[in-house]
Amino acid sequence: MAAALRGRAGALAFFAVAAAVPLAVRDQFFLDTLILILLWGALSAAWNVAGGYAGQVSLGHSAFFGIGAYSAALLSARYGQSPWIGMLIGMVLSVGAGLIIGYLSNRLRGPYFALSTIAFSQVLLIVASRWRGFTAGSEGIPVPFRPGFATLGLGHVAWAYLALALAALFYGIQVYLERSRVGYQLAGVREDEDAAEALGIPSRRLKVIAVTASAALTSVCGTLWAQYVGFVDPFYVFSVDLSIRFALNAIIGGLGTALGPWLGSILITALETYLRATFSGMKTGFAGIYLVIYGVALILVVRFVPEGLAGVAARLRARWTRAHA
């Protein structure tokens, strides 16, 4: 048990703090920030399953996010069904889409794969924004608020714990990927596909499975996000910005590390919230400031700490251990 927890102290502390905050703080702005940190972190964790652990870097994951968001929103707005059912349908659709994208990852490598995922998300954007009869087109869909757990009409505290449960689950999935047979085999595929094949690892099948699982998890987050925010705008949910954000949190936090997605999310979400609060009073001109921040953050991390915040933490811990040995 002690061995299993070693190196997980940071994660434990993070989840403990996240669990304690809603007990102490009732301020809605604060809780909203916490929920978004947990949700964006979970999204990056979902992305990490393909991009970090399997090395299949996608820049079109907003496709699955949008599928999850639309599935639940349309089902509850048009047919009055529970968003939980919408979540399931979104997952099924995303698995289908993930299989297609996963198959592409066997044909295309590196930037070509990333480009094709962008194209995929943009195709969905066009469908969602033009298919007026069903999706209401570019107007977007308001998600009806019906109080209760079955309809995901929850208060901020309940949302915080739901987001926390999701984050803990996704963290657990990543830990599984670090220690299980399939996880090690994926690491082999990521490092060198030919060598992995020579060792009996079915690299193509594993890549498809990783991308598909990642798609399904992203879709779940998309559903929850739509229910939380209450509105689905095709230009937002299928945007390239969003896909970049999933990747960015994971890269800044530490690619292929279990806690990294939330470390990146804390930094980016907090920055964004601060900027929105600071610059919201000003007129245009600053509207795109977050893009500049994304860019600067990415350059700084890649240049100075390519192993991400989680890597920095590990390095500091090692230094501390040596100094106190």
């Binding site: 060198d192 060598a195 060792l199 009996g200």
Partner: peptide
């Protein structure tokens, strides 16, 4: 595919080594 042949009991190494 190579992985299937490996499972049948034939494994190769690479001249240009491919460590993980």
């Amino acid at each position: 595919p190579p992985h299937a042949i490996c499972r049948l009991g034939l494994t190769r190494t690479f001249q240009i080594v491919k460590p993980f």
